[in-house]
Design a binder for these strands. Structure first.
Lengths: 377, 377
DNA sequence: TTGATTTGTTTAATTCCTGAACTTATGGTC
DNA sequence: GACCATAAGTTCAGGAATTAAACAAATCAA
């Protein structure tokens, strides 16, 4: 376990990139002397290392950066079958991959992780000792200690203390998190939101997820439900949703909804790319579907901006494109529905992510707990 | 200036009410020894005092509480003319009132405050020495240091360093804040949100304001615009708004909008109370207006809950009632448009506030900076 | 070569906090 | 009423984190 100053230092370096001791001391409000000691400790722990020296006037400064090989983390996604399991370093680089069968039994999951772990670490003799944590991403609600799954429809769980079960079985610190929140953490630690204090990540997939970072910290809400924009009413009186109400964003703008609408219109599109092509060729039904979906997502994002004034909106999508009609309408609607004073002030970035998102997100939860400390403080 | 441990102690007492040293030590994660010293210092500063003793098994415990007379704060509202100016204690009790003419010239305002201050403090010889800060509430955007007014349409300001101007003139620490955010802070320090970490306050008046507390701290957003729900699009393609877009919540559900709609319908109602009475008597136009307004506000609140999952929504209103059609529709719409799993999980409280809200809110900004420290940290 | 300049380290002093022993004030029990 | 159990709060020595100030190191500029 690191001291709070050590964690603060790692956090600052993670946000601002490689910096000299003097700069770090200033930005943390500490003396050079204190900085010197903290840096020395972290370097001897193998977590930090000196990189290049920068020449200026006076003695050159030595930049300190996270040592990529300083700590390893394991991430497991319980969103897919088979469940991917990755080994990640400090920078979110994936060093090894394995898969394991998906189970709904927590004890079986813990057993499978314990069995697969040696394979994942194979060939790295320092890995086991430098493995600092396991992270698990799942669909559902997780408590603020990132230990218990309060409820998961997909896994059929209710108050399952998954983290402790895995911890006991594997002997390694374990944290679990909701899928969308894990992606947000990974964007904060490894991605393009490193230096942004307030932002929201929208994960666009079969369903729509969202998570907020506020004040540099993941905000989970009072019941762990912050960011559940999928079920905000975007078309009052609209189509019924699986959740029981009507007109949810999820019924109009999710990848699943778009595909279903295309199918219902008799279009033979299997992907949003096909639908965009059809729309570009003038197919009225395709245009209508994409327009409606883009409009809905844009309005939801406008509300997000208007309500929370984030520094950035990041849309992470595995499938789909945002450079066609759908994305254009989404952006236009978002801009048109925020205070004109704010229009264009909040960057909306889209980010096509690879199939490792969920597992990498899971690993980032473990990294977050090591670097920044437990989310609840 | 207090140490961070002292501030933490004041914060905890403010949230949990009078507590014994042992309880406080436990809830702050400190040893009894440390607590003893911190409490001793704050008592000798006159900020804390011992209240009743509680008998249990063993030695009775002595409850510590904020000493109401331990510190005074001045609050000024620049929302009304004449501008009210109040003297407040630690508990938000108003000890004295004055008014001063409203001006749009920052230097004139500072001069007026300096002139009125002695009258406000008259008859309290310890007040001047125990006066710990001045807070100013205004309509507009304020920077995160609560020092500069970035923009105010009402006052015609752009980047006005009001806090420093007043500080120089009066020699007392000064902080400024947006009106709705000031009300939220006052509910956190003095009101019913004391022990809630995450909540949103909606101020319902001629306009609609809103502010969020997240993680026990005021969240101002990246441009100071967090909580601006008045201009979220609630009726796409609806009536044009002063802000330049259409269908804003403000055009349908604000007190001003309701009155204007009533006037446009030829109703002779001068207050929402009259309108409620008309509606109860079966006046179709009155019913329609209240229904539409309640529906709009309810939907906005549903979005607030769905997006941010706060522990409480607090509606602070000077005029109006929430026990009639308007309030009922608002609550029903809010409940009907959140995930059924969450329906009823987020208390929506309404709170009729007196005419001192804004000035008291302003004073709470000063108190907040004394008790909890600057908002930016 | 010398001085200016800035980085980073060392050292002693200081602040804040902890653990352990202690004092204080009560209730309960014989 | 004497005595013990119990819990609150205090005192005090020691330890960890931090600072200020002096110092050493590494470069540039004249």
């Amino acid at each position: 376990m690191l001291t709070s100053s050590q964690q603060q230092l790692l956090r600052v370096i993670g946000q601002s990139g490689p910096s000299s001791r003097t700069v770090l001391a200033a930005s943390m409000g500490l003396s050079k002397a204190a900085m010197s000691g903290i840096a020395r400790d972290l370097i001897s722990l193998g977590v930090l290392h000196e990189t290049e020296t920068v020449q200026g006037q006076g003695r050159p400064s030595i930049l300190l950066d996270l040592h990529p090989e300083g700590a390893f983390f394991v991430g497991i996604s319980l969103l897919e079958d088979p469940a991917p399991m990755v080994l990640s370093d400090f920078n979110g680089n994936i060093l090894a991959r394995q898969t394991m069968p998906l189970s709904r039994d927590p004890d079986v999951i813990a057993g499978l992780i314990a069995d697969t772990l040696p394979k994942l670490l194979a060939g790295r003799k320092d890995a086991k000792q430098k493995l600092q944590g396991i992270g698990v991403a799942l669909s559902g609600f997780v408590d603020e200690r990132q230990a218990n799954c309060v409820q998961s429809t997909l896994l059929g769980w209710q108050d399952v203390p998954l983290a402790n079960i895995i911890r006991r079985k594997c002997g390694i610190d374990t944290f679990i998190e909701n899928d969308a929140k894990a992606v947000a953490v990974s964007e904060k630690l490894f991605g393009s939101a490193r230096d942004v204090q307030n932002f929201s990540v929208v994960s666009f997939d079969d369903g729509i997820g969202c998570a907020h970072f506020i004040g540099g910290k993941l905000y989970r809400g009072n019941h762990g439900g912050a960011g559940e924009i999928a079920h905000c009413t975007i078309e009052p009186g609209g189509a019924p949703c699986r959740c029981g109400k009507r007109g949810c964003l999820d019924t109009v703008a999710s990848l699943r909804a778009i595909k279903e609408m295309a199918k219902a219109e008799g279009l033979s599109c299997h992907s949003i790319e096909d639908l965009e092509t059809e729309a570009a060729l003038g197919n009225a039904a395709a245009v209508r579907i994409l327009h409606r979906a883009g409009n809905a997502l844009g309005l939801a994002i406008a509300h997000l901006i208007q309500f929370n004034d984030p520094g950035m909106i990041l849309i992470a999508h595995v499938e789909g494109r945002f450079d066609g009609l759908f994305g254009t309408v989404m952006r236009q609607t978002a801009e048109a529905n925020v205070l004109p004073r704010y229009a264009g002030q909040t960057p909306i970035r889209t980010h096509r992510v690879d199939g490792d998102v969920w597992a990498r997100g899971a690993a980032s939860i473990a990294a977050h707990n090591f670097l920044i400390g437990p989310n609840a403080n």
